[in-house]
Design a protein around this nucleic acid. Structure first.
Lengths: 157, 157
DNA sequence: TACAGGATGACATCTGGTTGTCAATCTTTT
DNA sequence: AAAAGATTGACAACCAGATGTCATCCTGTA
């Protein structure tokens, strides 16, 4: 782990650069972790978001929940639909925008990978200070808040 | 900022999910920020890595430095070459693997966007606790360390 | 009830990144 | 010196996501 010239910059810049690197790293790690379950990082996350929701969701709701574009979420949903991991149900309130939820096999798939992740996380979490994790969480959110993008307009607290 | 069901999970998982979201968010923000300079987040980062290096670098060196795949770095370098922001120089030690460094216009371009970023960062940094930033930096690195991928093999401290 | 404007899904295109293959070039070993 | 093995760049295929356009559906308002 060489210090790398990037670390010599101001702490804010260094943190944001570390964020990019950590993201790439974890996506790669996640792809390998998810591979035995026939999933990718993206699909795993998508299944997780659906599993966490008590109600079926529309595509735009998924997009907001995941912080991803509407069309991005839709794309993944359609792929998951092709794989039979997700079910589409008619939305009584909107003819064009159906509701999505996990199918039986999607739920089973998610539960399996989530159990494996939990076992892994239990191990890894021991190496982290709870306070440090909370600080990190807070800083990441704040970095986001301080860098609004177009679609963030009109999001007062 | 609704708490979102994801935050109810364990702090490690929540932090990693926040990492993904923050990454996507900052890439989008960066693309907009860099647009007036005719750059993207990716190219800005690449120019920054070259600007930070005292010596010209080969493509694989760039890849390692940026935590990206060899072919990924190469792709961007070739695009930057097409744009004339980067120069390729023969490598006396390796006929196939040339050295890259910023061209005059690449340096100028980078200096302009970096000045703008510095002004922005000065503002934003005021909202952050130095200690919290350092903690975040540390946690992000540690998350990486605890999730080795294939190419991490053989990287003892 | 009509109509204007916003939300939505399909489709296409683009950026950025990984992975695999192959030939060319080092590098190491014998 | 020769052969075996590792690096490297070009090329191609692919995944994930953003963005733009368009037709369709929904909503609110005149």
């Amino acid at each position: 782990m060489n210090p790398s010239p990037l670390d010599t910059r101001d702490p804010l810049t260094a943190t944001i650069l570390a964020l990019f690197r950590a993201n790439g790293h974890m996506l790669r790690w996640g792809d390998h972790f998810a591979q035995p379950f026939d999933l990718t990082s993206a699909r795993w996350q998508m299944l997780g978001a659906l599993a966490a929701s008590p109600l079926p969701l529309t595509a735009p709701q998924m997009a907001i929940q995941m912080g991803v574009s509407r069309q991005g979420a839709l794309k993944q949903l359609n792929l998951l639909l092709d794989d039979g991991l997700v079910e589409r149900h008619p939305n009584p309130y909107h003819k064009r925008s159906p509701l999505y939820r996990l199918s039986a096999s999607g739920l089973e798939r998610y539960q399996r990978i989530d159990a494996a992740w939990s076992r892994h996380a239990d191990q890894v979490r021991a190496d982290f200070d709870l306070e440090a994790l909370n600080t990190t969480l807070h800083v990441l959110k704040k970095i986001q808040e301080r860098h609004p993008t177009q679609e963030d307009e009109g999001e007062a607290a």
